[in-house]
Design a binder for these strands. Structure first.
Lengths: 162, 162
DNA sequence: CCACGATAGTTCACAGGTAAAACATCTGGG
DNA sequence: CCCAGATGTTTTACCTGTGAACTATCGTGG
């Protein structure tokens, strides 16, 4: 009897006509994600980084080359206005560098500094470790099945795949 | 080949030493939750409500009685400062009423207004519907298995159950 | 009966996110 | 060659969320 089941019981009393069974999956997914993000963010706080900022560093790191600002925006899915703020902060922190393109001076190229790359390489594995720990009580087969089922749900929610 | 697999491939090139398989579950859970929350929030925006504010309304609704401000804070898990803001906004919108307790004038009782209750009864089923739609491509058995596996992960992340 | 610690909520000051407008620069058709 | 529309990023203005400090009130041991 966990939190979600208790909430469902309360609803059953108040609105018996509503089938709340979808929450068994939906509410749990949201809660698991929330706790995971919280743990990951706490870890980053020690390095004075937010999740959004790490997303920028890791996008650059796994691309393996400097990216146009717009490419980073696309890869992270964040709105452009957010990107400007994150890049400004990361630049101040000495983790990325922004250079205006010569051939098209609207364009901005974002590159990791040596410190930025180091930090990404240090923090990314720690983030994965949080995800590993979360699934620690599952067998290998269960983990694979969970991943498969989530992929089905994901495809439904975001048909363009992405 | 979905988004998560593509990201894992990129990492395999850059940091071959890191086992990114935990992301098959971790990153998908976070992405599914993000898309779900987004869809739910979009729905609420039409009624000029945020998810946090609906959390307050639904907590009151399923309790079935007025609650102390602190009880709402506990039930929703939000920090106290957030609660004050949400209650202030909901009060302005005529959806809840705050009354100072007579016997302990530090205390505040929060009650749904008629409009607040109506709105909760209208919006909560719509929120569940989003969760139902997300799992629409799963068989009943798969849904149950997904719920079970998530419950295991949840217990690991939040041993106090909550 | 009254300080003093505990408790309930609110206020403050500031982070981070975002839509929309603004700005700067480019490009292609006339 | 020039300018109207397209493009890439930043600025603006605002909103929500939050830790920490603060305020008001209560309860209790001396």
């Amino acid at each position: 009897m966990d939190y979600i089941e208790r909430v469902r019981e309360q609803w059953a009393e108040r609105l018996p006509g509503v089938d709340t069974s979808p929450a068994e999956v939906g509410a749990r997914v949201r809660r698991v994600a929330g706790l995971l993000e919280e743990a990951m963010a706490e870890d980053l706080a020690a390095r004075d980084l937010s999740r959004g900022e790490l997303d920028v560093l890791t996008a650059l790191r796994r691309a393996g080359r400097p990216l146009r600002a717009g490419e980073v925006t696309t890869m992270t899915g964040a709105p452009g206005a957010s990107m400007t703020k994150r890049l400004a902060r990361l630049e101040r922190a000495g983790l990325v560098e922004r250079t205006v393109l010569e051939r098209d001076r609207r364009g901005v190229v974002v590159a990791l500094t040596a410190r930025g790359e180091e930090l990404a390489d240090e923090l990314f594995p720690r983030q994965v470790e949080h995800e590993r720990a979360a699934a620690a009580d599952l067998s290998d087969g269960e983990r694979a099945e969970l991943a498969r089922l989530l992929a089905v749900v994901l495809r439904r929610l975001d048909p363009r795949d992405y």
